[in-house]
Amino acid sequence: MSVDQEKLIAELVEKGLSGDMDSINAIEDRVLRSKAKSALAKAKRAAKVATKIVPSEKKTLEVSIDDKQPSDNLNQKIGHMIDKKFPGSLDSELNDTHIQLKPDQWFDIAQWLKSEPSLHFDSLQCHTGMDVGDEKLEARYNFHSMTHDHYIEIRIAVPRDNAHIPSIEQIWRIGDWFERETYDMFGIFFDGHRDHRRMLLPEDWEGYPLRKDYEVQETYHGIAIPKVKEGWE
């Protein structure tokens, strides 16, 4: 590779890193273009590694807490942060075990939970639904951060007859099947899910079995489904 070419590629990579991909795509010479692209990918990877190392250096979570509620509990701390950043998103008083949220801003909050360097919740460990009675269904999320090694639990309650929660499947890919299963069993709809089908039951099954008021359908494709029998006969 000539010196000129190297200089040109270095310039293009700088442009690409600042978001200008057009100048690379505009190159006529295929070889040169692919060289520039691979150099760009390399630079991006290096940048990623650099940013990854930074948060792991400071292990402790530095969060400014309101003077009103001084607490070491992470659910409380992060609840406060969410309340500050997304006003009106909390659904109940903060407590030590979980953060109760409203569904409206959930997608933005979830994105922020993952991208904020001091939180960096990179793993959705568990997601499930629950019929909490009182005409409400609840979705629960357990998050863990590999970098900071801390956990929180988020709960979102929705009305039984209009159960819609924004999908976080595009943020944590594991959420894909988790949300499908919760939809299958509880009938909570996850808006924005790219593959919103039943997970375990057949597509044409009626009802959501883990709801407390679930009634088994009489037949399935002509096969009778016996109702619950009293004891063994």
């Binding site: 039951l201 079995p209 679930y214 088994v216 096969i223 489904i225 619950v228 029998k229 063994w232």
Partner: peptide, 8 residues
Amino acid sequence: WQHGYHVL
């Protein structure tokens, strides 16, 4: 036998 709504 008793509670499996989904089992034949």
